[in-house]
Computed example of a mutant assay.
Amino acid sequence: MNKNIQLQDLGLKGYKETWEYQEELFKGVVDIKIRNRREDANLATPNYFLLVEHPHVYTLGKSGDLSNLLLSEKQLEAKGATFYKINRGGDITYHGPGQIVGYPIVDLENFFTDIHKYLRFLEEVIILTLEEYGIACGRSEGETGVWLDVGTPFARKICAMGVRASRWVTMHGFALNVNADLGYFDNIIPCGIRGKAVTSLNVELGVEKVNEQEVKEKILKHFADLFAAKFVTS
């Protein structure tokens, strides 16, 4: 069981090329697993963790409702945003500058074979990270992601999540609002959930800008602890 995870910080990168890169890494891991099964081999499967920031983009999950995007094609262009229908779970979400996006492409057979546990662990990584900033947050029953003031009229989402898994290999992941322009969320019904707001870490802390590198380091520390993993850089 390979518990090393290859860490790659891609910086600012377009959604489409990042998605294609994810698919390439994902296929590479799956192909090794297929070969192991067919040839009774015992080749180690690699794990990856991509950190990235995207230009303004809206993505719709495979079970999502297109009506939750409230912009026409021309309005998207006017806002400098793009749109993609993709193969993760969940409905519609926004990615953009000031957001930390994490894509773990891991073989869960190196860790544990439980998708529900995997999602809860992803949420816990973000919960523990935000607690370091004094932010009390948690889960909302039946709604994946990380929320503040759950069960009150002021409930608001700070981190969206959506994953795909095949043969226990994961892709896609989480998007944490750190210094995000929340105005872009006004153009969608986030995750298809009406009547609930979205927030960002800098807003909750009442500061203009949060150190994103520091947040990334905290995320990686908690991920490594929860998954009993070790990050390596090539």
Rank of each mutant, 00 (worst) to 15 (best):
H56C: 02
L51S: 01
Y103C: 02
A175H: 02
T113S: 15
D107A: 01
Y103T: 03
V125C: 07
R120L: 05
P46N: 09
G142Q: 11
N47E: 14
L108H: 10
E53V: 01
T152E: 15
I127F: 09
V52R: 10
K62N: 08
L70K: 15
I158M: 11
P46D: 13
E131S: 12
D181N: 09
Q99V: 02
N110M: 01
L176K: 04
I92P: 06
R164D: 11
G151Q: 09
L69V: 02
V146S: 06
R167P: 14
D114T: 01
H116I: 07
I127Q: 05
R167A: 10
S63M: 13
E141M: 03
R139L: 00
R167L: 10
L69M: 09
F111H: 12
D181M: 02
K74L: 01
Y84T: 03
F83G: 02
R120S: 04
V169S: 06
R164K: 10
V52W: 13
I105V: 08
H54M: 03
A165F: 13
I86T: 06
E77C: 04
D181K: 05
P153S: 04
Y58C: 04
G102T: 00
E143L: 02
L122T: 03
L66K: 09
S166C: 11
N110G: 00
G98C: 12
D181I: 03
A136Q: 12
G138F: 09
R156V: 03
C137L: 08
M171N: 06
G145D: 08
T59K: 15
G162F: 09
H95R: 05
R139S: 00
D149V: 00
P55C: 07
C137S: 09
L182I: 03
T152P: 13
G96E: 11
R120K: 10
S166R: 15
I126M: 06
Y118T: 01
I115A: 08
V178S: 14
A160H: 08
V125W: 10
